[in-house]
Design a protein around this nucleic acid. Structure first.
Lengths: 200, 200, 200, 200
DNA sequence: CAGTAACCGAGACGGTACGTCCCGTCTTCAC
DNA sequence: GTGAAGACGGGACGTACCGTCTCGGTTACTG
C-alpha cells in the first residue's frame, strides 16, 4: 500500500523555481524588446537582468534558441473571436488584432525576429512558426475559404494570393508605411481595397 | 622636375590595392548571403575570408555599418525599364524584377537586413533606404499616380494603400508563401487580383 | 514521571547519525591525505566521498575550518612514553615518534597544513596548535629543561635553540632530505650530533 | 643579400609587451604576499590587478603553476658572497641571508608555498627547487664539505645531517619560534650551538 | 501507537572563476 | 604609406563547483 502512486512521481530534491523561470522569460523579452537580436542577446545579460545565476538558465534551456522560442511563444496574443457575420468583418477583426500587436514593443520584436533572423536560426523559426504563426494563418485561411464557399469571394480566387494581399498590405504598412502607430481604420481600408480592387 | 604632375596629386607611398578592396566587398557579401546578420558579421571573419589583414579593412571603413552599406549598394540591380504601355504592364515589370532578385541569395539577404535589423542599425537603414530602396518605391509610386491620372486606377485610391497591397503581396510570398522559388507568373497574378479585387 | 531524567535532556526528533559523522571525518582525512590543502578541500567533494548530503555536513560544522580541526585532531598519535633514563633516550623517543608519524600519509598532511596554511587560516592554526602541537613541544621542552637541571646539557643552553636544532633537523629531513622514508636510525644520529656538535 | 640574417628571426606581428609581463608577475607576487595560496590564486584576479586581459596571461603561461614558478623565481635574492675566512663565518652569512629574506612578506610566501603546497603541485615544486632552492643548498653543502676537508668540522660528520641541523634550526625559528622578526644575532647563535653541541 | 520534530538524501538556487574564443584596436616589420 | 601578422584589453561563452536553500521521506523519541 504505497503512499505515492500517481503517474509521474515528483523527482527528489528541491523543485525548480517557477519564479526564476518567469523572471528569465521576462528578462529575455525585455532585452529583445529593447532592440536586441537573437545573436546580440547574451545569456549573461539575461541572467543579470533576471537576477538569476547562469546555471539556472542552462539547467532549463540548453541553448539560446530554445529559450527564445519559449519566450516568444508566451507572447502571442490569443486569436480574436470571429463574429462570422461576414468575410469582411472577420478579416477586419484579424487585421485589427495584428494592428494592436504591432503597437506593442514586445510583439513588434517578434516580427523583427520572424522576418530578419529566420535564415540564421532555422530551428528557431520552425518551432516559432508552429507555435505562434501557424494558428493565425490557419484562421485567415479558413475565413477566406469560407468566403469562397459562401460566394462572398471570387470562386477562382487563389487562397494564398488572398492571404498575401491582405496580410502583406498590413505588413508593408508596419515596416514601411508612414511613421508612427498604424491608424485605427487601416484594417477596414485594407480589406475594402483588397476586396473590391484598385481598378475602377 | 616632378614626375607626377596631374591635377589631383597622388599621395606619397604605396597606393591602396584595388584587389584588396574588391576582395573585402565580395567577402562581406558572401558572408551576409550565408545568412549572417549585421551583428553577427565580424571584421575578423571578413578579413580572413578576403585573405586580408584587419588593418586593411579599418583603413578604408571606420566601422561595420559603413562597410555593409557600401557592400550592399554594389548589389542592387538597376531598375527595369518600364514600357509605359499600361499600368498593369509596368507593375508586372516592377514585381518581376523583385521576383528575380529574390531568387539570388545575395539579394535576399538585403531583404532580411532591411526587415530584421532596421531598428538596430538606424544609420545603416537610413543610408541603405536612400541608395537602394527609395528609387524602387519612387518608381512604383509614379506608376500608380500615373494610373490614377489616366483613369486606369480608381480616382479615390490611396497611393500608399496601392503600394502596400502590391508590394506586400510579393513580400508575403517571398517570406511565407509555398517554399521554393517564386513562380514566373506570380507578378502578373498578383497584379490582376490587386487591380480587380477579391470580391466577385 | 519522565522517562529520561539524565542531566542533559536528549533533544526531540531523530538523533544525528554517528555513522554519517564518522564517514565525513574519514572522507575529509582521506582527501587531505591525497594531497589536498584546506583551500582546495571542498565540502561537496567530502559529501560525495562520504555518501552524505551537504546539509548533513553543514548541520554539524558551520565552516570548513571547524571540520578540518575536528578531523585532524582525531589523528595525532598519543605521545610516546618517556623512559626518563637519560635526556638522550627521551629525545630519541620523541624524534622516533615524529619519524613514525611522518611515514603515514595522513600525518604528513598535518605537517603540510601546519606549515603551509598557517598564515591563511589563523583560527585553524591556533586551535590545531593547542590540541596537537603544543603537547609535543611541551614534552620536548621539559626533557631539555630537565637535562639542563641534571647537568646532561650545557647550563647556558637556550631551550628554544635546543628545540630548534633537534626538531628542525627532523623537519628538514622530512621535507628536504634524501627521498623515501626516514631511516630508523635517524633520530639517534640527529640527537648524537646535536648533543656533541659538528666541530671536532 | 638578405637584410636579416641573425640566428632567430623576429616573428611577424606585434611583439609581446614586456610591460604587461612585468605587471603580471608583480600582481601575482602581490597576491601571494597577501596570503593567497596557489589554489586560491585566480587568474582573473591577477589579470584585474595587473590591468591586463586574461588572454595576455594565457598567451604566455599555459597554466597557473608555470606562472607561479616564474613569478617566484624572480624573487629569490642572490646568494650572499662568502668571505671564505672560516666555516663559521660562511655559515653565519648564509643563515643571515635566510633571516633577512624571512623578514619580507614576498619571500615568506615562497617558504609557505615551498613547504605547504609541495605535495599538491609536484611539478611546480620540482621546477622551483631547481631554480631557487638548489643553489642555496649547494652553497651550504660546499661550505660544510670544505670545513670537513680543512678539519674545521668533524671528519665523520654526515653532510646532510649538518645541513639539517643548521637549516632546520633556522626554519624552526621562522615558523614556530617566538613571534616577530628573527633577532639579528640568531644566525651566529645557531651556528655556535650547532658547531659545539648542546652537551657540556 | 500516533504525533512530531529533527534528521536524511537529493538537487535547485545565486554566485565566482575557469579556460576559450573572438571582438575591434594597436604596434611592429617588410615591401 | 600600405599590408600581414599578431599581441593587446575586453567581454561572453558554457562548465564546474561553491555554500545555501528547500523539498519529500525517514527515524526514534514522546505523549
Amino acid at each position: 500500500m504505497t503512499i505515492q502512486e500517481s503517474g509521474t512521481a515528483r523527482p527528489a530534491g528541491r523543485p525548480r523555481s517557477e519564479k526564476a523561470e518567469k523572471a528569465i522569460i521576462e528578462a529575455t523579452l525585455d532585452l529583445i524588446a529593447e532592440g536586441m537580436g537573437v545573436s546580440e542577446l547574451s545569456i549573461e545579460a539575461i541572467a543579470a537582468k533576471a537576477g538569476v545565476g547562469k546555471t539556472t538558465i542552462y539547467r532549463r534551456w540548453s541553448n539560446k534558441e530554445d529559450l527564445v522560442v519559449d519566450a516568444l511563444s508566451t507572447l502571442k496574443a490569443p486569436l480574436p473571436p470571429l463574429a462570422g457575420t461576414s468575410v469582411r468583418d472577420d478579416l477586419v477583426s484579424l487585421l485589427d488584432a495584428m494592428r494592436q500587436e504591432s503597437g506593442e514593443a514586445r510583439s513588434r520584436c517578434v516580427m523583427n525576429i520572424a522576418m530578419g533572423e529566420a535564415d540564421r536560426y532555422p530551428r528557431l523559426m520552425e518551432r516559432f512558426m508552429k507555435r505562434a504563426v501557424e494558428p493565425r494563418r490557419r484562421a485567415m485561411r479558413e475565413v477566406i475559404e469560407r468566403g469562397i464557399a459562401t460566394g462572398e469571394l471570387r470562386a477562382d480566387l487563389d487562397v494564398d494570393m488572398g492571404m498575401a494581399i491582405i496580410s502583406g498590405a498590413m505588413l508593408w504598412h508596419t515596416k514601411w508605411g508612414p511613421a508612427g502607430d498604424l491608424p485605427a481604420d487601416l484594417p477596414s481600408r485594407v480589406v475594402d481595397v483588397a476586396l473590391s480592387g484598385m481598378a475602377p
